[in-house]
Design a protein around this nucleic acid. Structure first.
Length: 885
RNA sequence: GGGCGAUUAACUCAGUUGGGAGAGUGCAACCCUUACAAGGUUGAAGUCGCAGGUUCAAGCCCUGCAUCGCCCA
């Protein structure tokens, strides 16, 4: 794209904005509705329209982006469908808070005006998270952005509701549900968060009618006693075997309630006598149904006591608890109280203690849907990764309870049910009715409630693609390839999408479900505002750049483990981005626009080596991404780029590049350098899109955006370039160099002091490798000279290093410290001997030789030979130096 | 109460059919060597939570225990 030079350090700001705008302007993220190219699709887990980007979103979307960008590099037609969720209760709460600041309530405004207010809010402040996703680099097809409340999706919701109703899978009924007195709505079981709380277990005596004694019950919620309609004991409980009484008096009231017998009662808990409050406890509700008890509601929708509470009427439920306890004490009916830890349900939106309460609500009968969804995973139509989560999925699906879908709020999809007050006719149709089909009355009224937010998100994979219309988009991209999500919404969302997808599309919504970990702080604590340990992704991006942040997330995203995020780690990977930048800066000094082709025969060992390692890396990265092991892909790249490409290859290439070995060698080095750097950029691009695009655009050998490049792995290229013999030979040379460097370091020989080294070897192959790569060794070990010697002219006063069959003698004329050298060799000998003994032990074990596979024995054998060889050489060298001394 | 996961170097974590313990950060020493001090070279550092078992061979498989965390009831 033109040559240029780069600044000394990489500065992400400016560059990121530039390229993101460029990608958008040129439509690189657009999916084709119909195409000859293979399709790949992901639907985004729609963030709440009220949301701000947090670490969980960042991880979730970076993973999706890596896959989408990778697939584009492989030539796929990629759809990454973006959008937001209307988040019923959450959004309504936000807008209500805004109103409250102005001294208004939603009731004052009225339904229509309030909903308008919410839309206005959404216009103005909603969807901020979309901009934040763009800063991450998310390559969604933004022109297709959807919203769960937009027209098309609302049509889909309506259609689904009507069909389920007509199939008998949606019904209205009077059941116990979870009620949030603050949000003033019903909640699904899932929407209740349980938390262990310190509380008391109160023992309250219920006297027999006209008698002093009675039954003592134990409860954590005394205020509910006003709703008691029975006391239950276990029929097998010895304590109550001879009980003649049939009723007890309910304290603080003038009601007598029956004593019932049921095996449900736990004889171990409390006194064995259970107060039964069918209207305010799910288990008691079931008991009530079974025994035909009255269900007396004593707490209203605001959490205040109703008529049944007598003189406590109108009190808040918790205030009532205190006052009722006082009153019981006075009557000497409070027998005792003891501390108890127990689990209390809270509203997942506002954290208010939920009140189990009897109420008329709409439900989905999910069991038949759940069975199909469960079977789809059992049969492998949909894979859950990591697999361990499928167990959790089955557990939930197989014990599923009906889903309460009505919410007593205003923001959401209004339930498409009309009722006729005159004749009680119920109308559920796809178009709004104008009059009652039974009696002709026009005084019909629509249900005031709206649907659970998750009802519309359950349709997301197909509603966003145009369902109920039969669109090309659906044909091309449904089912989606993979859904990427955190396990916290496995039940809320994934399970329900499975049910709805299978039911309405006759096809699972995704082939794979990849479940990633949660992001925690660096000590493993959940990030929360109140703890103050939240790391803001946007701040991290500002400070270190989106690329460094993305790479950190990728490296951390190991399967099945939580991600512990720390800023210092991001800083570390920022260094990596900078390293890439500087390596490219160096490369740019040498690469020319001239079209250079690689002639394999002319290549040096290190050039063949880096091409081989590059091929190896391309396969490792491919495997990593395709098996959802993003950390392995990222680590492979890190290792290759820094420790192979930069540390070794670039150093070995310098003499050639600076034309110290002729023009032909220079051109070879240039061609390999530009090829490998290009491959690196392309392989890294899914992880660090901005910096790779910037460098790619500056390279004189490339055309166009890196987004239109082709991923370097293919079988043929791999077969040509991968060469394990070359890799082994190169490692031998590296070993020589490191050995000499080690002596330098241990002996405190300054780099400026050029040293003479003699190599002694009896191995012909090693001799050839050394001869062919002599200048590389001289350069990288900073030598004055490097020659072979014979057994009879080994130099005196020298330090030695053994690699393979070769010993390098580093001449230390005049500067040698014999004691130091003796210690050095002794240390190595000790280490070597230890290893040798371990290997020897295995070879002396007859069972091992008998039972271990042939290849393992052979491997150990050759290890033994090598170690023994080395051991002998070290001993020789040690003796020699001792004699010298 | 039921289920799941974790425990590996000072810290944060990898370790995929069981076959000689790894990375990053940090630490120590030396080095401004013409891409990079956000760097280079070299080095020190682990009884892989504990106790058993299976196996020729266990960080990896099995059992029990301890500690921590999560989900469901």
């Amino acid at each position: 794209m033109g040559s240029g030079s780069l600044d000394k350090g990489y500065e992400p700001s400016g560059i990121e904005e530039k390229w993101y705008a460029y990608w958008l302007d040129n439509g690189f993220f657009k999916a084709e509705d119909k195409s000859d190219k293979p399709a790949f699709s992901i639907v985004i887990p729609p963030p709440n329209v009220t949301g701000v980007l947090h670490m969980g979103h960042a991880l979730n979307n970076v993973i999706q982006d890596i896959m989408c960008r990778y697939k584009r590099l492989l030539g796929y037609n990629v759809l990454w469908m973006p959008g937001t969720d209307h988040a019923g209760i959450a959004t309504q709460n936000v807008v209500e808070r805004d109103l409250a600041a102005k001294g208004q309530t939603r009731d004052q405004l009225g339904r229509e005006a309030f909903i308008q207010q919410v839309w206005k809010w959404r216009e103005k402040s909603g969807g901020a998270i979309i901009h934040q996703l763009k800063r991450l680099g998310a390559s969604c097809d933004w022109e297709r952005e959807r919203f769960t409340m937009d027209e098309g999706l609302s049509d889909a919701v309506r259609k689904v509701f009507v069909r389920l109703y007509k199939e008998g899978l949606i019904y209205e009924g009077q059941y116990i549900i979870n009620w949030c007195p603050r949000c003033k709505t019903a909640l699904a079981d899932l929407e209740v968060e349980h938390e262990e709380k310190d509380a008391y277990l109160y023992y309250i005596r219920y006297p027999f009618v006209n008698k002093k004694q009675g039954l003592t019950v134990a409860t954590t919620r005394p205020e509910t006693l006003f709703g008691d309609t029975a006391v239950a004991v276990n029929p097998h409980d010895e304590r109550f075997k001879d009980l003649e009484e049939t009723h007890v008096m309910l304290p603080l009231t003038d009601r007598a309630i029956p004593i019932i017998r049921d095996e449900y009662v736990d004889t171990q808990f409390g006194t064995g006598a259970l107060k039964v409050t069918p209207a305010h406890d799910p288990n008691d509700f079931n008991l009530g149904e079974k025994h035909g008890l009255e269900k007396l509601k004593v707490i209203d929708d605001d959490g205040l006591m109703l008529d049944g509470a007598g003189r406590f009427k109108g009190l808040d439920r918790f205030e009532c608890r205190q006052q009722a306890l006082e009153a019981l004490k006075e009557l000497k009916l409070l027998v005792k109280q003891e501390p108890l830890k127990h689990s209390v349900g809270h509203c997942y939106r506002c954290k208010t203690v939920v009140e189990p309460s009897i109420s008329k609500q709409w439900f989905v009968k999910v069991a038949p849907l759940a069975k199909e969804a469960s079977d789809a995973v059992r049969s492998g139509k949909t894979r859950i990764i990591p697999e361990t989560w499928s167990k959790t999925y089955f557990e939930w699906m197989d014990n599923i309870r009906d889903w309460c879908i009505s919410r007593q709020i205003w923001w959401g999809h209004r339930i498409p049910v009309w009722k006729c007050p005159a004749c009680n006719e119920v109308m559920v149709e796809e178009t709004d009715p104008t009059c009652c089909p039974a009696c002709g009355s026009t005084e019909i009224a629509q249900e005031p409630d709206v649907l659970d937010t998750w009802f519309s998100s359950a349709l997301w994979p197909f509603s966003t693609m145009g369902w109920p219309n039969d669109t090309d988009l659906l044909k091309t991209f449904y089912p989606t390839n993979v859904l990427v999500t955190g396990f916290d919404i496995l039940f809320f969302w994934v399970a329900r999408m499975m049910m709805m997808g299978i039911h309405f599309m006759d096809e699972v919504p995704f082939n794979d479900v990849y479940i990633h970990a949660l992001v925690r702080d660096e000590h493993g604590k959940k990030m929360s505002k109140s703890v103050g340990n939240v790391i803001d992704p946007l701040k991290v991006i500002d400070e270190h750049g989106a690329d460094a942040f993305r790479f950190t997330l990728a490296v951390f995203a190991a399967q099945g483990r939580d991600v512990k995020m720390s800023e210092s780690r991001v800083e570390g990977y920022r260094h990596f981005v900078n390293k890439l930048w500087n390596a490219s800066r160096f490369a740019l000094m040498h690469i020319t626009p001239k079209d250079v082709t690689i002639e394999h025969k002319k290549l040096s060992l290190s050039e063949k080596w880096i091409l081989s390692r590059c091929a190896h890396t391309s396969l490792a990265v491919k495997d990593g991404i395709e098996t959802y092991r993003f950390n392995e892909a990222a680590s492979a790249l890190y290792q290759f780029v820094w420790h192979e490409f930069c540390d070794w290859f670039l150093e070995t290439a310098k003499p050639s590049l600076y034309e110290k070995e002729g023009v032909q060698r220079r051109d070879c080095a240039r061609s390999v350098l530009s090829k490998v750097l290009e491959d690196i950029l392309i392989m890294l691009h899914p992880f660090v899109p901005f910096v790779t695009e910037e460098i790619y655009s500056i390279l004189p050998t490339t055309n166009g955006s890196i987004l239109s490049a082709t991923y370097p792995y293919n079988e043929q290229a791999y077969e040509t370039l991968r060469d394990e013999t070359v890799e082994k030979d190169m490692e031998f040379v590296f070993g020589l160099i490191s050995g000499i460097r080690n002596i330098r370091s241990e002996m405190n020989i300054q780099l400026s002091m050029r040293i003479k080294v003699l190599a002694y070897t009896t191995d012909e192959k090693e001799k050839i490798i050394i001869a062919e790569n002599k200048s590389m060794i001289v350069n990288l070990a900073s030598l004055e000279s490097f020659y072979f010697c014979d057994a009879d002219n080994i130099p005196s006063s020298c330090a030695s290093s053994v690699i393979g069959d070769t010993t390098c003698f580093v001449s230390l004329e005049g500067v040698i410290d014999f004691d130091k050298e003796i210690r050095r060799i002794e240390k190595e000998l000790e280490k070597n001997t230890k290893e040798l003994l371990a290997v020897q032990k295995r070879l002396n074990n007859e069972s091992f030789l008998e039972k271990a596979p042939e290849d393992v024995i052979q491997k150990v054998n050759s290890q033994y030979v090598d170690l023994e060889e080395k051991n002998n050489k070290l001993k020789e060298n040690l003796n020699r130096i001792k004699i010298m001394k």
